[in-house]
Structures are given as C-alpha cells and as structure tokens.
Simulated scan of single mutants.
Amino acid sequence: MTWSEAEYIDCLRSERRGYAWVMQHHGGLTSQEAQEAALERYPYEPEDAPYRGLIFHDEAWHWAMVAIHGDRYVVEHPELTAPSPDYQALA
C-alpha cells in the first residue's frame, strides 16, 4: 500500500493511541508507561523503509494483547479476541 506521509502519520498516531489505551486499561501500565510502550511498539519508519507500516496489518488491540498475554491469548482468553466497545470508541 502506498500512503502519503500525512496518512502514515495519522495511522501511526491512531495505533499508538489505541495501543497505549490497551496497555493502560488491560496491562496495568501508568499513562506514561503506556505512552512509552506505544512509541516503542510503533516507531516512526522512514518513507523508504521496505516494510513501512507492515505492523498495521493487525490493529493495536491485537499487538497489545500479545504483549500482555502472549501469542496464545486468542486461545487462552477468547473473550479478548475482539476489541472492547471502549477501545472501539477511541476511533
């Protein structure tokens, strides 16, 4: 997918916000810790990065749940496979 820089930045900000929200509300991190985790998980990638934005193939909810519960969260916590209504309201 080819995105403009503005589209990429908007998506990056949105995913960081969602990831931080999940890490704070489900992972027990403070607001500051959650923001730092989001920046680490979603670093800015330059326009010429070969796989820029590949992380966006799954939404922040998924990546945060993997960080909190591990790769098997969908099996061990099936109630968490779909994003919560509160998370969806962030959009």
Rank of each mutant, 00 (worst) to 15 (best):
H57M: 07
I55W: 04
S31W: 13
H77Y: 14
D10G: 04
V22M: 04
A20R: 10
R16E: 01
Y44E: 06
E45S: 05
L12K: 04
I9C: 07
V66P: 00
A20E: 09
L29M: 06
M65A: 03
A64C: 11
L90M: 14
S31P: 08
L54R: 07
V74D: 15
T2G: 10
R52F: 12
D71F: 08
T30L: 10
E45F: 03
A60P: 00
E76L: 13
Y87A: 14
H25K: 12
A67T: 07
T30K: 08
I68R: 12
H77W: 11
Y19H: 08
Y73H: 09
P43K: 00
V22T: 09
E79K: 00
V75F: 14
T30D: 09
Y44L: 06
S4R: 10
W61M: 06
R17H: 07
A91H: 13
H62Q: 05
D10I: 03
Q32L: 10
W21V: 00
G70D: 06
R13A: 08
E40H: 10
E7N: 12
Y51V: 07
A34H: 03
Q32M: 09
M23H: 02
R16D: 02
E7Y: 12
I68C: 12
L12E: 06
P83S: 15
Y87H: 13
I55L: 07
A37V: 08
A82Y: 14
V66C: 01
G18S: 06
V75N: 13
G18H: 03
A67K: 07
A38S: 07
L90F: 12
S31N: 13
H69R: 15
A67I: 01
E15F: 07
V66R: 01
T81S: 14
A38K: 03
Q35S: 09
Y42G: 04
W63T: 01
P46G: 06
R72D: 05
D71M: 09
P43W: 00
Q88G: 13
E5I: 05
E79H: 02
G28L: 11
A60F: 04
E5K: 08
L29E: 00
A38F: 05
R17S: 06
E7R: 12
S4H: 12
Q32C: 07
M65G: 02
L39F: 05
T81R: 14
G28M: 11
W63Q: 03
E47V: 04
R72P: 00
W61N: 02
E36P: 05
S14P: 04
P85I: 15
R17P: 01
E33N: 08
R41T: 05
R17N: 08
W63M: 02
W21A: 00
A89P: 12
M65W: 06
Y19W: 06
A38W: 03
W63V: 01
L39M: 06
Y19E: 02
W3F: 12
G70M: 02
W3D: 08
R41Y: 05
E47K: 04
H77T: 05
P43V: 00
C11Q: 11
R72M: 01
A37F: 10
S31M: 12
P78E: 13
G53V: 03
R52V: 11
M23W: 02
L29T: 00
P83W: 15
V75K: 14
F56G: 09
